[in-house]
């Protein structure tokens, strides 16, 4: 590792003997008499790695990204807390856009195929990944899912991540954009509590705005907090139930394609 800037060449593995500049003897007893003799350590190897622990995930994510670019697929990673309305937004989006767009969905949940079933009813091909005890999707799961679902060129692929604002933030899946969904039935201080997710997202949809008259959620506060963490993040106020903000969402999607 460079001692000035701390960087390390990930491909460079350096092996050397450990520094060992002391000598010592040890002493033990044999049938009532003591003697000493030189002590030798078993030979050791120090392997300098300086390898990012997420290296393998990031390598596979880049591979996924290359696959999407090669097929002109717009891949979006939808992240959120549980119950913010991701699946409902997706269902409505598919119903509205399926006449003019090819849409595919990878669903991530700990258990059940309920979401994939809902998505297929709205008209898009879907594949469910059950993460079991896992709390997030990673690039390898997407890589394997892509082998099971034939994605058309010039299509949109939505990856609906596990509802969790913590763990999915650290795992690049190879998406072009990350879309974060929160809802007004949650606290408006969500960005302060889950900064990594807000920092790593490109678009924040604030859903269930039809409920704003009945809850204490302050939209300006939420947007200010998120903007402080990530000055580039965009916002769409949406109610998947009434249709508010859906047009703006479709315009945003068109700009990414």
């Amino acid at each position: 590792m460079c001692e000035t800037c701390g960087c390390g060449n990930p491909d460079e593995t350096n092996i050397h003997e450990p520094k060992h500049d002391h000598e010592h003897e040890h002493q033990h007893e044999h049938d009532g008499y003591k003697h000493t003799h030189p002590h030798e350590h078993a030979p050791q190897k120090v392997i300098d790695l300086n390898k990012d622990i997420l290296l393998e995930n990031n390598r596979l994510a880049e591979r996924n990204r290359g696959y999407f670019e090669g097929k002109h697929v717009l891949c979006l990673n939808l992240v959120s807390s549980p119950g913010s309305g991701k699946t409902t937004i997706l269902e409505k989006t598919i119903r509205d856009l399926i006449p003019t767009h090819k849409i595919f969905v990878i669903e991530g949940d700990q258990q059940t195929t309920r979401d994939a079933d809902r998505i297929e009813k709205s008209g898009a091909a879907a594949i469910q990944i059950n993460t079991g005890t896992g709390c997030h999707l990673d690039a390898k799961m997407i890589h394997l899912a892509l082998k099971k679902i034939e994605i058309d060129t010039n299509s949109i692929l939505f990856i609906e991540n596990v509802g969790n604002l913590v763990c999915p933030a650290l795992f690049d899946l190879g998406e072009q954009k990350r879309v974060l969904v929160i809802s007004v039935t949650e606290g408006d201080d969500k960005p302060l509590k889950y900064p990594y997710m807000f920092q790593s997202s490109d678009l924040c949809i604030i859903n269930k705005t039809d409920l704003l008259p009945y809850v204490d959620f302050n939209v300006d506060n939420a947007m200010n907090y998120a903007g402080q963490l990530n000055p580039d993040i965009k916002f769409i106020l949406m109610s998947a139930k009434t249709g508010e903000g859906m047009g703006e969402w479709y315009d945003w999607l068109e700009k990414q394609s």
Binding site: M1, D52, I53, P231
Partner: peptide, 17 residues
């Protein structure tokens, strides 16, 4: 607006027999 340090997460080295 910029985190400039403290984002490292890596295996630095191993000592093997």
């Amino acid at each position: 607006s910029e985190v400039s340090g403290g984002q490292e997460f890596r295996v630095v080295s191993l000592v093997a027999e």
